[in-house]
Computed example of a mutant assay.
Amino acid sequence: MKRSIDLLLALIAAIPLLPLGLVVALAVKLTSRGSALYWSDRVGANERIFRMPKFRTMKVGTPAVATHLMADPKSALTPIGGFLRRTSLDEIPQLWSVVAGEMSFVGPRPALFNQDDLIALRREAGVAHLRPGITGWAQINGRDELPIPAKVAFDREYLERRSILFDLRIIVLTAAKLLGDRTVTH
Rank of each mutant, 00 (worst) to 15 (best):
M1F: 12
M1R: 13
K2G: 13
R3Y: 01
R3A: 02
R3D: 03
D6T: 01
L8Q: 09
L9H: 12
L9C: 02
A14D: 04
P19H: 03
L22W: 08
V24K: 00
V24E: 03
A25I: 05
L30K: 00
L30R: 04
T31E: 08
S32H: 05
R33E: 10
S35V: 13
A36W: 10
Y38V: 13
W39F: 15
W39S: 15
W39V: 07
V43S: 03
V43A: 08
V43Y: 04
G44F: 00
A45M: 11
N46P: 02
E47C: 10
I49C: 00
F50I: 07
R51W: 13
M52L: 14
K54D: 00
F55E: 03
R56F: 08
R56I: 01
T57M: 02
M58A: 02
K59Q: 14
K59D: 06
G61Q: 06
G61W: 03
V65R: 08
A66Y: 11
A66F: 13
H68A: 14
H68L: 05
H68W: 14
M70T: 04
D72I: 04
K74W: 11
S75T: 14
S75V: 03
A76F: 10
A76R: 14
L77G: 12
T78P: 06
P79G: 14
P79M: 05
P79Y: 10
I80V: 15
I80N: 04
G82T: 04
G82Q: 03
F83T: 11
L84N: 13
T87F: 00
S88H: 12
S88D: 11
S88M: 09
S88C: 09
Q94G: 07
L95D: 01
S97C: 00
S97E: 03
V98M: 05
A100E: 04
A100V: 01
G101Y: 00
G101F: 05
E102C: 13
M103G: 09
S104L: 05
S104A: 07
F105Y: 12
V106G: 00
G107W: 04
R109V: 02
L112G: 07
F113N: 15
N114K: 00
Q115C: 12
D116Y: 12
D117G: 09
D117H: 07
I119Y: 07
A120H: 08
R122L: 13
R122D: 09
R122K: 02
E124H: 12
A125D: 00
A125H: 00
A125V: 10
G126I: 09
G126N: 03
V127D: 07
A128M: 14
T135H: 08
A138P: 01
N141M: 07
N141V: 05
G142C: 01
R143N: 04
D144W: 03
D144A: 01
E145F: 11
E145Y: 07
P147Q: 03
P147E: 09
P147V: 02
P149G: 11
A150Y: 12
A153M: 00
F154S: 07
D155Q: 10
Y158N: 06
E160L: 10
E160N: 10
E160R: 13
R161M: 15
S163W: 15
I164P: 09
F166K: 15
R169E: 14
I170E: 13
I171N: 01
I171P: 11
V172L: 10
L173I: 12
L173K: 14
A176K: 15
K177W: 06
K177R: 15
L178V: 11
G180P: 02
V184G: 00
H186G: 15
